[in-house]
């Protein structure tokens, strides 16, 4: 009697597992469906076309691993691909004018469907980072950058790192929250140089 009950329980359990396997979609299937539903739920407006929802490999991989630990090999691949994609300035100069840089760091407009496509477009750095001490309205999603150059040293390695990081943050920290300002054509080369100056010029308010 007992054996029979156990037997039926096992059969029932196996059936439940089979049904479960047959009906529960895999994670990849759910992702694919979510992307499909998402694309059907938006419409192009102003400068924000539907191509904004076409993910590149970095976006796709980072979405997949969001909320989970990023495997080392996956992180290294993302960083390698993005590092190789950085366009370094042809004239070899990494720094522009920190005064322009401060304006770019303050400017929050750009790329929203509600923004004028003719500009201005800013980096909105203060939204996430502390920079010049005079600006106390700063966000905390990114690390504080106050005295960035003063602390790290005013040398070529750090200037190059600053330029590369602003151009393509994924090259140094896979699945960083920071936009790829140069790579994704948010800011121009000249604007990126001005931001490097804001971080690296000894005269910049950031380094006082």
């Amino acid at each position: 009697m007992n054996k029979r009950i156990i037997g039926w329980t096992l059969v029932g359990g196996a059936a439940a597992v089979l049904i479960g396997c047959a009906t529960a979609p895999t994670d990849a299937e759910t992702s694919a469906k979510a992307t499909q539903v998402l694309k059907a739920s938006f419409k192009a407006r102003g400068q924000a076309g539907m191509d904004r929802l076409d993910q590149d490999e970095t976006q796709k991989t980072c979405s997949e691993f969001a909320g989970k630990p990023l495997p080392k090999d996956v992180a290294e691949k993302i960083e390698k691909v993005n590092l190789a994609a950085i366009k370094w300035p042809a004239d070899g100069k990494l720094m522009g004018d920190w005064r322009n840089g401060e304006k770019i760091a303050q400017e929050g407009r750009g790329k929203q469907f509600s923004d004028d496509p003719k500009g201005p477009v800013g980096g909105n750095c203060y939204a996430c980072h502390q920079l010049a001490p005079a600006e106390v309205s700063y966000g905390t999603i990114g690390p504080p950058l106050y005295q960035f150059g003063k602390v790290r040293g005013y040398n070529d390695d750090i200037r190059k790192y600053a330029y590369g990081k602003i151009w393509n943050a994924e090259a140094y920290s896979a699945c960083s929250n920071m936009p790829r300002f140069g790579h994704s054509q948010i800011l121009t080369e000249a604007q990126v140089k001005d931001l490097v100056a804001l971080l690296m010029d000894p005269q910049s308010p950031v380094n006082q």
Binding site: T30, A66, K111, P179
Partner: peptide, 20 residues
Amino acid sequence: RLGEKMFYFRGGSHDFACAT
């Protein structure tokens, strides 16, 4: 489940997701 995936969907010019 779909909403959860959308919450983590990174896209657009700035690579932003809700989760950012």
